[in-house]
Structures are given as structure tokens and as C-alpha cells.
């Protein structure tokens, strides 16, 4: 069996002196759509950020394509994360935010400009591409964050509550784009508390606070 696109083994994370979760082992395969659910404080955000390689876990390891992240940090570029609070640069326009991510990944200026157009348009932001982030509504900002993650065409896309600010119509658009990642061969992991979103995924992982994770089947 081929290696899972992303996996973690015996992952334990702490924050503020408290244990968030202990001894968690999960696998995410290419083409899978997984929903991670659980009440507030159960550690969804912490799990996603650790999986994205943004901070070393207290113990355990994260592997991308079977290779531990600790051994080869450059693998982080294959995992994209949509932050819960978007993490956008407020003084840049929507298009510039997407371009910056592309430029940071090494594309040239022209390439970045070209590549940013599509995802923004597909998420209904074509008219707002040149608006500064701080002039956009919460929902629009969230979609820019999603576009930014999508543009990079990552192997694994982790999304932390990506539809929290969207109204019904846009929720559908965002979900469609995210789910399409799996169609292209990537792995999609969405942290959410929305049952509708969970319903569209292949499987659900439920996290219960301060206990080992249970892999719930659908």
C-alpha cells in the first residue's frame, strides 16, 4: 500500500501547560476528504497547525508521504493550511495576498500574477481582487484565505473552519472548491462543527477533549 499523503503517529500536543490531545495517530490518503469534528477546545486548530508543520509536537511525529517532517522540513511546502483567522496581510489586496504565497513558493512575478486570477474568480471574488483585505467583509476575507491555499496546488489541504463566515450561497462555492482538491488527487482535511459540511466528506474524525482521538466512522 502506498504511503498516506499525510499522517501522524502518537501525536501529543500541549499548549499553555495543558495537554490538548495525547497519543493521536491518524492517516489521510490521497483523494480523501476527511472532516475533523469536536467541540471547542478539543484541539482541532492545534491538530491542524501541527499537521501543517507549524510547531513541533510535544511528542510523536508528523509524516508527509511517509517521510517525517522533522527530517525534511522542506516537505512543509506540500501542505497548505487555511487558518481559522485567515492570516491575511490586511494592507495588501486580495490578489496580492494570493500572489505573495506564490512568490514565497518561488514563482516569478508574472507567473504569480497569472496564477492568482483563477482561484479568486472561482470563489466569487473576481470583482474584489484589487480591494484591500481590510475593506472586505469577513466572509470575503475567508474566501481569499481559501483561494490562497488552493493556488499552491498542494498535496494536502488543511482547512480550519473554512465556511464559518459564509452565507448559504457562498458556503456551497467554498465547499465545492475545497472538495475538488480531492478530485485532483490531493488530500483534504476540514475541521468544522457544521454537520452539513461533515456530510459531504468521506469520513469524520471526532476529537474528544483530553483523550486519545477516536476514529469515528461515518
Amino acid at each position: 500500500m502506498s504511503e498516506p499523503a499525510l499522517s501522524c503517529q502518537s501525536l501529543t500536543c500541549e499548549a499553555g501547560g495543558r495537554e490538548i490531545f495525547r497519543d493521536l495517530s491518524l492517516e489521510f490518503r490521497a483523494g480523501e476528504r476527511v472532516a475533523v469534528m469536536g467541540p471547542s477546545g478539543s484541539g482541532k486548530t492545534t491538530l491542524l497547525t501541527t499537521l501543517a508543520g507549524l510547531g513541533p509536537p510535544a511528542s510523536g511525529q508528523v509524516l508527509v508521504g511517509g517521510v517525517p517532517l522533522a527530517r525534511d522540513p522542506s516537505l512543509r511546502s506540500q501542505v497548505a493550511l487555511v487558518f481559522q483567522s485567515y492570516g491575511l496581510l490586511t494592507l495588501l489586496t486580495a490578489a496580492e495576498n494570493v500572489e505573495v504565497a506564490l512568490r514565497a513558493a518561488g514563482r516569478t512575478g508574472a507567473e504569480a500574477m497569472a496564477a492568482a486570477v483563477g482561484p479568486l474568480a472561482r470563489l466569487g471574488l473576481a470583482g474584489h481582487a484589487d480591494h484591500l483585505i481590510e475593506e472586505l467583509s469577513g466572509g470575503q476575507q475567508q474566501r481569499v484565505a481559501v483561494a490562497r491555499a488552493l493556488t499552491l496546488g498542494p498535496r494536502v489541504l488543511l482547512a480550519d473552519e473554512p465556511t464559518a463566515e459564509q452565507d448559504a450561497g457562498h458556503r456551497e462555492i467554498v465547499l465545492t472548491e475545497l472538495l475538488a482538491v480531492a478530485d485532483r488527487g490531493g488530500a483534504l482535511v476540514i475541521a468544522t462543527h457544521d454537520d452539513e459540511v461533515a456530510a459531504r466528506c468521506d469520513r469524520v474524525v471526532e476529537l474528544r477533549p483530553a483523550v486519545r482521538g477516536a476514529v469515528g466512522a461515518r
Binding site: 467541540p39 471547542s40 477546545g41 478539543s42 477533549p209 483530553a210
Partner: peptide
């Protein structure tokens, strides 16, 4: 009031 708390505190 409980969205940013764990179960017990909530």
C-alpha cells in the same frame, strides 16, 4: 460564552 472553552469549563 463557551465556544472558546473546553467541555468542563463550558
Amino acid at each position: 460564552p463557551t465556544s472558546q472553552l473546553d467541555d468542563d469549563s463550558g
